[in-house]
Computed example of a mutant assay.
Amino acid sequence: MAKLSPLMIAPPAIFAGLAALFFVGMLRENPDELPSTMTGKPAPAVQVTPLGDKPVFTDADIRSGGVKLLNYWASWCAPCRVEHPKLEELADQGITIYGVNYKDKPGNALGFLQELGDPYTAIGADENGRMALNWGVYGVPETYVIDGQGNIVLRFAGPITDRVLENQIMPAIEKAKAGE
């Protein structure tokens, strides 16, 4: 009888392990959603610098009463351009939106807002990406729904579309309002 070597067993075992991980990943409610350890926890500190003469927000603003959104964006980000009209709709509905301009040139960022409009209640620049790192940002655009106590209710990575607005952002805003 031939003896099985570890080299003969390893490939099928590795394949079976990877297949199990893939299967477990498919069981998630939304496999495209990036998990966040921040949900339900206090928002990390705000560390932004002014962007031109735009009003800047502070850590105290994030933790003050009322539901608000914090949106990471950049002028060089094509999906940020796609989601911008949705942010303007939310602002028109009276939702407070704080903008964090991520690793951008100030002139380009201000030009982006001049061209497309400014939905932000206040805005700050994260020129070196330090704040984004603390918030767990994967890339732009990325939006956080924050409750009146400064806790993160939802983290959404990607552009806000009609479907995202209806199925994720608005339910999170309602949940945050209910907790006030």
Rank of each mutant, 00 (worst) to 15 (best):
D118Y: 04
D61C: 00
A91N: 08
K175A: 07
C80V: 05
A125V: 01
P159G: 02
N167P: 03
C77G: 09
A109D: 09
N167E: 13
A10E: 09
M38H: 12
N167H: 10
N151E: 08
D147K: 04
Y98W: 07
G139S: 12
E142K: 02
K177T: 03
E127Q: 13
P171T: 02
I95N: 08
Q47S: 14
C80T: 03
L165C: 06
C80P: 14
A13F: 03
V153R: 14
I160K: 04
V24F: 12
G148K: 01
E89I: 12
R28S: 13
G17N: 05
E142M: 08
I62Y: 02
G148F: 00
S36F: 04
S5P: 09
M26E: 13
A20G: 12
G117R: 09
G117V: 08
Y98T: 04
E127F: 07
Y138E: 14
Y102D: 10
Q114T: 15
V137N: 12
D61W: 04
G179K: 11
L113Q: 09
G136Q: 09
L116S: 13
Y138C: 09
K68R: 11
E29I: 01
I169E: 07
M38Y: 08
F57A: 02
F23W: 14
G94C: 06
P119R: 02
I9P: 10
I160W: 07
A2F: 07
T39P: 03
P50T: 04
R163Y: 03
T39V: 15
G40N: 11
A43D: 10
P141D: 08
G136Y: 05
W73A: 01
